[in-house]
Amino acid sequence: MPVNNLGKTLEQQARTALDRVIDPELRRPITELGMLRSVEVDDAGAARVSVLLTIAGCPLRGTITGDVERELAAVPGITSVDVDLDVMSPEQREELKTLLRGPGGARGIPFSRPDSLTRVYAVASGKGGVGKSTVTVNLAAAMAVSGLRVGVVDADVHGFSVPGLLGITASPTRVDEMILPPVAHGIKTISIGMFLDSNQPVAWRGPMLHRALEQFLTDVYFGDLDVLLLDLPPGTGDIAISVGQLLPSAEILVVTTPQAAAADVAERAGTVAAQTGQKVTGVIENMSWLSLPNGERMELFGSGGGAIVSERLGSVLGYEVPLLGSIPLDVRLREGGDAGLPVVLTESAVQDGTAGGELRRIAQGLARRPRGLAGKSLGVTPRG
């Protein structure tokens, strides 16, 4: 068996290369997840690899096969690659779930645990049509492209739109009772729209809405996230109350438009935090102005709505609620949503005065708030 200058055999080099093959749903190396069953390389350099998929009919089997072939083809001395795909046994899936969730496969809400370091932002609005979902996915994409591990829960069960805004057409994968969310632009995302046929409406009332949100937070495996964003439905109804119960440490971001009437309604969405015990982190004003060809700004929906909401919430809640930013009207924002490509990922996102540039600036400000251990239990006790 050929060896390299570090004394590694070709088979050992192949195993090292496979450490770089990342499962597209779990976002961890297949070698770490117990998915690599065997690797053999003969004297002629022909490699045969056996990979265990989590479930039969895995929708991303082609991606895994291609990644294995690409990584091994780059190893000097390997002349061909044959990938054999099989499926984990029930016992192997149990081992995988134990690896991911710990002994016993605890199914609680990880983001509500006292030791959770994930920062949770619930994006709220008083009324529909203010661009809340578009703001949510663009903040998520901007954070993800900066290197953070980000997840999004589309909690607007009746008006779900996040999958389309992120260009997600894949369905979640089920590993027994555990749900693996699709990943787009580096963002792990779950939405009720992923479980429906075509554009089927959802006619659910309070208890069903609460159970759906609870299942998203309990059964969906997001892994270790830096940031989780929830796109809430407009208003102060069932989902807003459920978020307060299930994620009491979540921070609220209020989205409004410059219009005074919209500001009045948005204030209500923020003051519900006083009842749930959550903190309002800030206000984002959307559709603030339209840049004209001559450089002037046209304020189509008036002005000052964001500042009004910020000031009123600060007075009601008893602490500063800053205006985090003002996003202009920009056709590229709409085009990005239609194409499933958030505008913060395009070239215009680096330009001042554009919607993409302002969204990235807001996201950077939120992302700079580091995950800390202050006040967290480390789970250790002194020996007696």
Results as ranks from 00 to 15, higher is better:
272 V>Y: 03
224 D>Y: 10
254 V>N: 05
275 Q>A: 06
306 G>Y: 02
332 R>I: 01
341 L>S: 09
307 A>W: 00
250 A>I: 02
238 D>I: 11
315 S>Q: 14
335 E>H: 09
347 E>R: 07
315 S>G: 10
276 T>N: 07
285 E>D: 14
277 G>V: 07
343 V>Y: 02
237 G>M: 08
325 G>S: 12
234 P>Q: 09
325 G>E: 12
307 A>G: 08
240 A>S: 15
246 L>T: 13
219 D>Q: 12
243 V>G: 14
244 G>Y: 03
238 D>Q: 11
299 E>I: 00
274 A>F: 01
288 S>R: 02
288 S>E: 13
240 A>V: 11
255 V>D: 13
301 F>W: 07
240 A>L: 03
308 I>D: 15
329 L>Q: 11
322 P>F: 03
338 D>W: 02
286 N>W: 01
326 S>Y: 03
227 V>I: 15
287 M>G: 03
248 P>T: 06
342 P>V: 10
259 Q>M: 10
269 A>Q: 03
261 A>L: 15
316 V>K: 11
222 F>P: 02
255 V>K: 01
258 P>T: 12
311 E>K: 00
274 A>V: 06
336 G>S: 06
246 L>N: 11
249 S>Y: 00
309 V>M: 05
314 G>D: 13
262 A>R: 01
309 V>G: 06
339 A>M: 13
304 G>R: 03
242 S>K: 03
312 R>I: 05
